[in-house]
């Protein structure tokens, strides 16, 4: 569903991503962990076509992103760290507008049902989104992904700054989408959430995937220890 083939991105002398090989299958949650500047957001941007790779390819549902910039996005939903909405429009209006642009026109009762499904209180549906908390905006973003019936979902630090309850609700919703066969690639710093949600985890450092394992590989292991050890080792190798 989502596949990176030798995906590389250089900004001048800086190699932000070096030959990433990765695959996310339908119904799977793949969490990318790594310190700031590890290449997680670059990976997201390359899957979204926001930047062109220096080498390699990003595939979405069998479509080479660079050659199908628009078509590939028809199958893709994206929730950034901060879902930015039009503050003068209500959550319902934002959802209606963005979903329509994504090719899944929704209106009235459908909009209400979608917002209810992601747990946005009914009283907030028609309030200006400028008054929303971050968690409420993230929910509208998720409702947008649901409305789009996307086959792949990209989440870039989606729970950062959310309180534990909101974060839990968000994970539950992602899991329910995953159960419907959506492939989810999530970049996060939240090790607890990654362990809870992911089928597979990749640890990135300095633009490289330095460790990859399934939830079974982590049985009895402390994810924090694995993460720190691999990040430290990668930093030492880079320094050497």
């Amino acid at each position: 569903m989502l596949r990176a083939e030798g995906l590389t991105k250089r900004y001048g002398e800086v190699e932000a991503l070096a030959g990433l090989e990765l695959e996310v299958r339908p119904g799977e949650v793949y969490c990318l962990l790594g310190p700031n500047g590890a290449g997680k957001s670059t990976t997201m941007n390359l899957f979204l076509g926001f930047a062109a790779p220096t080498a390699g390819r990003a595939w979405v549902c069998g479509l080479d992103v660079q050659h199908h910039l628009i078509e590939s996005k028809r199958h893709l939903a994206y929730i950034p760290e901060q879902v930015h909405l039009y503050p003068h429009l209500s959550g319902a209006e934002n959802l209606e507008y963005f979903a329509g642009l994504g090719g899944s026109a929704v209106s009235g009762p459908e909009v209400a049902a979608l917002l209810e499904r992601v747990g946005l209180p009914a009283a907030a549906h028609h309030r200006r989104s400028g008054e929303y908390s971050k968690g409420m905006r993230q929910k509208v973003g998720l409702a947008l992904a649901v409305a789009k019936r996307a086959r792949a979902l990209l989440l870039d630090e989606p729970t950062s700054g959310l309180d534990p309850r909101a974060s839990f609700e968000f994970s539950r919703l992602v899991r329910s989408m995953c159960d419907e066969g959506v492939a989810v690639l999530m970049a996060t710093h939240d090790l607890f959430r990654a362990r809870d949600l992911a089928n597979r985890i990749g640890i990135m450092s300095a633009g490289r995937l330095v460790w990859e394992g399934g939830s079974g590989d982590l049985a009895g292991e402390d994810l924090e220890r694995v993460y720190l050890e691999h990040v430290r080792r990668a930093a030492e190798e880079a320094a050497a």
């Binding site: 979204l48 926001f50 628009i70 078509e71 996005k73 028809r74 893709l76 994206y78 950034p80 901060q82 879902v83 930015h84 909405l85 039009y86 963005f98 642009l101 994504g102 090719g103 973003g141 947008l144 789009k148």
Partner: peptide, 14 residues
């Protein structure tokens, strides 16, 4: 600046 461009282009808007 608002960040809505990312969401718009991410939706597949040309």
């Amino acid at each position: 600046e608002r960040g809505t461009l990312r969401l718009l282009v991410g939706q597949g808007v040309r």
